Computed example of a mutant assay.
Amino acid sequence: MKRSIGAICALVALSACQPAVPDSAAGVFYDEKTGEHRRTALPPANAVSQETIPDAPQIATIEPAPVVATVPPAQSVAATPLITTTTAQPQTAAAAAATVPSTSSTASAANDAASIASETTAALAAASANSGEQPLHASPSNPAPQVFSNPGISDENDFSAVDGRRSIEADAARRAQNKANYTVIQPTAVPVRTGDGGPNIVAYALETKHPRGTKMYSRLKIGGASRYEKACAKFSSDEAAQRAFLEKGGPKKDRLGVDPDGDGYACKWDPSPFRVAAGN
């Protein structure tokens, strides 16, 4: 009993020695006039604040328009479901009868087969009649085809083939015979033209140097362009006109009226191609 009383007294003494806990509910502020820190008591918990909090803005909710799905009207289609391994069902008598080919279709197929067989037989008969031999059917038991040597191909490069029918002495005699038959033909001079063929327009083109349209000879302008066109129309080509022009006294004289500008060239004859060929 004494011990319990002593323990109680010790607890009371310890509680008296414990420092006071500051009031956390009291506020502390600095007074600028006095320069001291002061405490103010906070309002009680049941006090109502005078501040007014504005209400949250109301957002108008837009309701979406109802979606109306347009579904086409159901059509009455007699669809036959696919038959799988899991959904296979025995066919009815009507379905089995539908899958069996009719007698008419069977007869048509038989007629087609008979027609193909007859056409094949006729084709084979025609082929055998053309060649005189029956067609060869492919079979492993057929004999190997006979190999014919081509007589057009020479075997002179085959030593084993030539060795039996040729010798060194025979080759030497052949070489001597070929050498004796070899004849060297010496070149000769080109024969001189007799001049019976008329003026040579190629030689005339190479002798002259001036181009077409350059006046080299005087002309009497009689008849003008109409006379020139009629004169050139009489010849089959410009080469024939130039040859006749040289035969009749050209290029100094133009008795045919084919060189009115006096360049020495009849109608539209041009010596340039001959000069270019000779230059190359």
Results as ranks from 00 to 15, higher is better:
Ala173Leu: 13
Asp171Lys: 14
Ala78Trp: 10
Ala138Glu: 04
Val71Gln: 06
Ala78Tyr: 11
Ala180Lys: 11
Gln75Trp: 00
Leu256Asn: 12
Asn142Met: 02
Ala94Asp: 15
Glu32Thr: 15
Arg174Ser: 11
Ile62Pro: 01
Ala69Lys: 02
Leu206His: 06
Gln242Trp: 12
Ile5Pro: 07
Pro101Ala: 08
Gln242Met: 15
Lys253Gln: 14
Glu119Ala: 05
Cys17Met: 09
Lys253Thr: 13
Ala16His: 02
Asn157Phe: 03
His210Lys: 11
Val28Pro: 04
Thr92Gly: 14
Ile153Ala: 03
Ala144Lys: 06
Thr70Ala: 00
Glu247Ser: 12
Glu169Pro: 02
Ala172Ile: 14
Ser139Ala: 00
Leu246Pro: 13
Phe148Arg: 11
Pro211Gln: 12
Asp171Leu: 13
Pro64Leu: 06
Ala180His: 02
Arg38Gly: 00
Ser237Gln: 09
Asp163Gly: 11
Asn130Val: 01
Ile116Asp: 08
Ser118Met: 02
Ser149His: 14
Pro64Arg: 12
Pro199Ala: 05
Gly223Ile: 04
Tyr30Arg: 11
Ala126Val: 11
Ala144Met: 00
Leu246Asn: 09
Ala13Glu: 07
Pro73Gln: 06
Val276Trp: 08
Asn142Leu: 04
Ser15Lys: 05
Asp158Trp: 01
Thr99Val: 05
Leu246Gly: 07
Thr40Trp: 13
Pro135Ser: 07
Ile116Pro: 00
Gly223Phe: 03
Glu207Leu: 07
Thr87Met: 02
Arg212Trp: 10
Tyr265Pro: 03
Gly152Met: 14
Pro81Phe: 03
His137Cys: 00
Lys248Tyr: 06
Pro64Asp: 05
Glu239Phe: 13
Leu206Ser: 09
Ser160Ala: 06
Ser226Pro: 00
Ala127Leu: 12
Tyr182Pro: 00
Pro145Phe: 05
Arg165Ala: 02
Ile116Trp: 09
Thr86Tyr: 06
Leu82Gln: 01
Thr80Glu: 10
Ser141Phe: 03
Ala233Cys: 04
Ala74Asp: 04
Leu136Asp: 13
Ala266Arg: 03
Gln134Met: 09
Ser115Leu: 13
Ala13Phe: 14
Ala122Trp: 08
Lys252Ile: 08
Ala233Pro: 01
